[in-house]
Design a protein around this nucleic acid. Structure first.
Lengths: 245, 245
DNA sequence: CGACGGTTTGACAATCATCAAATACAGTGG
DNA sequence: CCACTGTATTTGATGATTGTCAAACCGTCG
């Protein structure tokens, strides 16, 4: 039931960058202005750490300063399902008034830096923070809906392409990647457990997508080709409203 | 984008029963006392109505006074996935400060009565209401996690049994059914679209479960046999903490 | 009765899982 | 720098689960 033990917590010096930036954007989308966050602490943890544990109390806001994580569920015969990925910059969990127990377990998929801070401050600041967290929650919910539809009603081919498109969009939103390339530090087995497939099948599907010229993957960097076309092919709908131009 | 049009809204006379009862229980689990709700309106709608529509504004709390509904997603080639069922007594949607747009479409699966009321009142009452809605949200999130794991990592046999067990538990929690019987007014096609399978396969799996003596289904009433055993077989974990005794 | 929606059945095909082994790759210590 | 170890990827062969298509059946309602 303990978690978040590795690494010494240290105050965050320079860039609260990713996290703060993303929360600003989310707050803005709700019509709130978010300037600064309370003093952050950062803790480094290796891959496969439990960042939070189901039913554990949540005292502060936790976010991924860097690295990847996921909400995970295990069946008693060893089957594993990643319910939802948590990408760099995104919120891991936060204390929601009234329900401050974690509703699922979150593990790191890579080495991570976990930022944490108390949810407080001046009323106006707090309001902006809550708005940002609410918007984050909302986005998370949409991702989970995507996840259900992907797994429930799409072929392996579609699942994989759709997930990659979603990762791309979320990473772009958090300003960690540009239009056509993004880091993908996941093993094929992890991808499999995120998509309800086997790693063998992920491997073959990946090859197929590569053969058909939809993607290139070298050294943990994914490059999707002709994103718009791929979106049409697998019926991908943007999570965030597209800026009209 | 319009919704909730059929039926005349009428004030709820007698029993706000199910909904109120369930919210009371949820509030209590958060340490709040919920006595009464603001004046409710009830509206009757046929099956297949859109109760709320994705991105539609939500002005009041909506709950299922009676009947069944579901959050639904459609792919452009006609594939359908029910992301989550909404059972009698449960909340359909409510205006969350900061994010008051519906995050998915909800349709009725049977004729329904939709109760609605404004989220207001004395501060202490409002607080209790928010606590109840928060707890409802939390339960919903757990259901969605269940849904992802079911679809992602379980066989057809397990999926069906697991879903039935979940429906049973939720209906018991809302006091609409007793220990060993519950109404199941869903077609096999609806169940299929909830489980990411085809109706043909649902049919065969149902027969199998029946043959093995796990269930009996007559006239829309489901009777699960030896619930504890079935729970063990499909690794079902209760949504709500079991009252210790 | 006829029509309609839902269920049931059968034959067959496709997708995806399983198992096992080979290959590539990264880190570690000599 | 190289062998050595462990983990991740790739490949092949085979099988199980689930989907597809089509038709028959059944109950209800007009």
């Amino acid at each position: 039931m303990k978690a978040l033990e590795a690494g010494q917590p240290r105050p965050l010096s320079g860039n609260a960058g990713l996290v703060l930036n993303r929360l600003r954007k989310l707050a803005a989308s709700e019509g709130h202005a978010l300037d600064v966050l309370p003093r952050m602490m950062v803790r480094t943890m290796p891959a496969r750490s439990e960042l939070i544990c189901y039913r554990q109390g949540i005292g502060s806001v936790l976010a991924l300063q860097s690295g990847w994580a996921a909400h995970v569920e295990l069946l008693d015969d060893g089957r594993r399902q990643f319910v939802q990925l948590v990408l760099p910059g995104e919120i891991i969990a936060y204390p929601n008034p009234g329900r401050s127990l974690a509703s699922s377990t979150v593990v790191s998929l890579t080495p991570v830096e976990v930022a944490s801070w108390q949810l407080d401050g001046e009323p106006w600041s707090l309001k902006a923070q809550m708005a940002a967290l609410g918007a984050s929650d909302e986005a998370e919910r949409r991702c989970m809906i995507n996840q259900v539809v992907r797994i429930g009603r799409r072929s392996a081919y579609e699942r994989l392409a759709h997930l990659l498109l979603e990762i791309r969009e979320r990473l772009i939103f958090s300003s960690v990647s540009t239009d056509h390339e993004f880091p993908l530090p996941l093993t094929q087995e992890i991808i499999a457990d995120a998509l309800g497939l086997t790693s063998v099948h992920i491997n073959r599907t990946l090859q197929l997508l590569r053969q058909e010229g939809h993607l290139e993957l070298r050294g943990g960097v994914m490059e999707l080709q002709e994103v718009r076309r791929l979106m049409r092919i697998v019926d991908y709908r943007p999570l965030f409203p597209v800026p009209s131009h």
